[in-house]
């Protein structure tokens, strides 16, 4: 028998995918499909849009309406799709480099407009597809092909960036914390307005090897041991919070959604 999720929501002739052993991207991609399944969405009513990069290969495997677009421009294409047909559930899959470097401006303006798109950022802290160059989320001091002596940049916190720009739903989670990931992605898709889930992923091949982080299992164990929900962290004494990374649902508020405002404007001008 075949994997039931794969058979229902993926292009079986394109599987197995070509991501490296232990790469988190397959975990996050499956979580998106589970969220769609639980929401009971019609496959023909879902559009998955990606840019360029390892993560952006996902729409090739996913059996929905799919667009594999240009580097950084997934949100721009998705904005067009959503404005043309606001009834579609438009889900953007974008890597950390694609979303916050090349497509950084699209991210802040999609968030500012509060357009009803769901963005899932596969954040593995590096440009994997092109050979391990540092990205805007590579931690300071970490190594990359283009930072052989250590990265001197300060990294972006993509979740905070989206909240600062106006996102009305934003959550951060890791590839280890799959139950929470399913929940956040489901909430993000159901949310009316711009939503972002930053999924912290491991790249054992480039980021892991360059920084001697060990195997995929060791990298996943690090996520397990270091990420805690910010609501839990708030109750911990300072010494227990030290060195911990925060995850959780950071914002979930209602605000007027862009395509609804646009339709209302058209209606008003018709009179």
């Amino acid at each position: 028998m075949n994997h039931p999720l794969a058979e229902s929501y993926f292009r079986m002739d394109k599987l197995p995918h070509i991501w490296c052993p232990g790469c988190s991207h397959g975990i996050i991609m499956a979580s998106i499909a589970r969220a769609i399944d639980r929401l009971g969405l019609d496959k023909d009513n879902v559009c998955i849009v990606s840019g360029i990069g390892c993560s952006s290969r996902a729409p090739g495997y996913m059996d929905f309406n799919t667009l594999h677009t240009t580097h950084g421009r997934a949100l721009a294409f998705a904005t067009g799709v959503k404005l043309a047909n606001p009834k579609l559930e438009v889900i953007v899959i974008s890597g950390d480099g694609d979303l916050s470097a090349i497509g950084g401006n699209h991210l802040i303006h999609a968030a500012r407009r509060n357009i009803g798109l769901t963005t899932i950022c596969f954040n593995n802290n590096i440009y994997g597809m092109t050979g391990g160059q540092y990205s805007p989320t590579t931690p300071t001091g970490d190594k990359a092909t283009t930072a052989p002596y250590g990265n001197i940049d300060k990294p972006f916190d993509i979740t905070k960036l989206a909240i600062g720009a106006g996102a009305t739903y934003a959550a951060k989670v890791t590839a280890f914390h799959v139950t929470q990931m399913d929940k956040y992605i489901e909430s993000a898709i159901a949310h009316k307005g711009f939503s972002l889930v930053e999924a912290i992923a491991v790249c054992p091949t480039y980021y892991g090897r360059k920084n001697r982080k060990g195997s995929a299992v060791e990298m996943m164990t690090w996520l397990k041991d270091h990420y805690i929900d910010f609501k839990v962290a708030e109750k911990l004494p300072p010494e227990k919070r030290e060195g911990k990374e925060l995850m959780g649902e950071f914002i979930n508020v209602d605000a007027p959604e862009y395509t609804a405002l646009y339709d209302a404007l058209i209606d008003r001008l018709k009179d």
Partner: peptide, 19 residues
């Protein structure tokens, strides 16, 4: 089912025992 949820490759899953 945690193996199924964390498998990046759809390679392990819970399914009917008849096949």
């Amino acid at each position: 089912g945690m193996c199924q949820m964390r498998c990046p490759d759809f390679a392990i899953f819970l399914g009917g025992s008849d096949s």
